[in-house]
């Protein structure tokens, strides 16, 4: 009987700990810290499952909650700090003198640092070979946020972004000071066309 009392005492203690963890997950602001908290939360629930006579459920919870759930949270949170730019111009706009010192790079870096984003510049060969008419389709179908291209006649760099994205408007406000940079917004179509 003494053993059983000890077990129910442990159960109560773990339940109170679970409530504390749940409250801290709800009130915490930083999503990165919450991942650690949710892993702890899931391990506490697993031990409560064992106390509630369900070892099968506990094995499943430990296997899933300790590795796969934190992984997908980490990846999706890190992806939500990312600003993907497709560089079609391929000249000294981004890379000047073999380093990231071009005028466009400085602007984009200032922009992403200001909004705590991570700049990701890619120049995929197959994507860059697509014509300018398909830029809107490209923007909608892939995760690319911004397309950089060059208008040779006016000698102006054109940055194309989605009109639905709030970041395009913020970039437009920031790029107003530059003479040779122009921000173009695609018209909205229905999401998922």
């Amino acid at each position: 009987m003494g053993n059983l009392d000890m077990l129910s005492l442990t159960a109560y203690a773990l339940q109170v700990l679970l409530i504390i963890m749940a409250v801290s997950i709800v009130v915490h602001k930083n999503n990165g810290t919450i991942i650690i908290l949710i892993t702890t939360f899931s391990l506490i629930t697993a031990s409560l499952y064992v106390i509630n006579k369900a070892p099968d459920v506990a094995i499943a919870e430990v296997a899933i909650g300790s590795a796969i759930i934190p992984l997908i949270y980490v990846i999706s949170i890190s992806r939500q700090r990312e600003f993907i730019v497709l560089d079609k111009a391929m000249d000294d706009f981004i890379i000047a003198d073999n380093a990231f010192t071009g005028v466009g790079y400085v602007l984009l870096k200032r922009f992403t640092d200001f909004y705590h984003l991570e700049l990701n510049i890619c120049n995929d060969v197959r994507l860059c070979s697509l014509g300018a008419g398909r830029d809107q389709l490209l923007c909608e179908q892939t995760n690319v946020d911004l397309i950089v291209s060059k208008d040779d006649e006016r000698n102006v760099y054109v940055l194309k972004g989605k009109a639905s994205s709030i970041l395009t408007y913020k970039l437009e406000a920031m790029a107003r000071d530059y003479d040779n940079i122009e921000v173009v917004k695609f018209k909205d179509r229905d999401f998922g066309d």
């Binding site: 919450i34 949710i38 899931s42 629930t45 006579k53």
Partner: peptide, 24 residues
């Protein structure tokens, strides 16, 4: 949005624990 998904996870764990409590 991510916070909402976290909260759904909490609700889900709570429901599982409630079922097991009632079975025990």
């Amino acid at each position: 949005i991510i916070k909402s998904v976290f909260c759904v996870t909490i609700i889900e764990s709570g429901v599982i624990l409630l079922f097991l409590n009632l079975g025990n």
